[in-house]
């Protein structure tokens, strides 16, 4: 397994895309810290990148990478190696390299310019989202043989979680606003990893607004240790489940 990971990782490095991605994050973060002296505002702008750009790049890059290394996978399968090992090896290598990009691209400037707890939450959210969306990318890749179709499905995942889902949620809260919705929204939120990550950031940035009546409910929930365990568990479920399903599909697939 480690050898597979190593080969795939070197392969990814050779394409240079990952370096460009790191550089992009690095430049963005440094530029924002340069433009604004208020750390809170910088974190806010970075949050938009982490919630939008990071999932998009992760999912598209992973899908493309999977199809580009199809020949390598086929070659490996000719060897006496377990299919699962190859598949998970691919997954870990991609997830590892993309997470590393975030940690380097956002984390290093943050260390240099100084960041508080909200900065670390942002890094955590970024890494978690990367892992989730790499998972989803692998799922969409094994679902179809056609590269274009897979990228389409991947983009749909991204579009759904970052835009459509929130629209539906807003519609539900607006339609049923006469009912107590706290628990319902809490449940619905956990069906969207981007929203989960966003809530973690809200707790850092908009704590004062969240202290209103309904807000206090979320604050008490997510601010407590149960809430932390819950949100981490949900994000983990979002990482593990697609990968497990994808691995099973891959195992049975006629390549």
């Amino acid at each position: 397994m480690t050898r597979v990971i190593k080969y795939v990782f070197y392969d990814i490095l050779r394409t240079r895309f990952i370096l460009l991605y790191t550089l992009f994050l690095l430049l963005c973060t440094i530029a924002m810290f340069q433009l604004d002296s208020d750390t809170g505002k910088v974190i806010l702008s970075l949050m938009n990148i982490v919630l939008m750009v990071v999932p998009l790049i992760s999912i598209v890059f992973s899908t493309i990478h999977f199809y580009n290394s199809y020949e390598f996978i086929e070659l490996m399968l000719a060897q006496p190696v377990d299919r699962k090992v190859i598949f998970l090896g691919e997954y870990f290598a991609v997830a590892f390299s993309l997470s590393l990009s975030i940690l380097a691209g956002v984390g290093i400037p943050m260390m240099l310019y100084g960041a508080d707890a909200s900065g670390f939450t942002l890094l955590y959210a970024g890494v978690m989202l990367t892992l989730v969306f790499v998972s989803l990318a692998f799922l969409s890749s094994v679902l179809t043989r056609d590269k274009a179709k897979a990228i389409g499905v991947a983009l749909l995942f991204w579009f759904y979680f970052s835009l459509i889902y929130d629209g539906l949620l807003l519609w539900i809260t607006y339609t049923f606003m006469d009912y107590p919705l706290e628990r319902l929204t809490l449940t619905l939120i956990s069906f969207n990893p981007i929203d989960m990550a966003r809530i973690l950031m809200l707790l850092q940035l908009d704590i004062s607004a969240l202290m209103g009546f309904t807000g206090a409910f979320y604050k008490n929930f997510f601010g407590s240790s149960t809430g932390m365990i819950f949100s981490t568990a949900v994000l983990f479920a979002w990482i593990v489940m697609p990968v497990v399903i994808a691995a099973r599909v891959f195992n049975r697939k006629d390549l």
């Binding site: 629209g167 809260t173 607006y174 606003m177 981007i194 809200l202 908009d206 969240l210 009546f213």
Partner: peptide, 18 residues
């Protein structure tokens, strides 16, 4: 919106709201 539906505060800073 939050004034009318306090629960909606949960969607603050999402891309849609933006």
């Amino acid at each position: 919106i939050v004034e009318r539906v306090p629960t909606a505060v949960l969607l603050w800073r999402s891309f849609l709201v933006f």
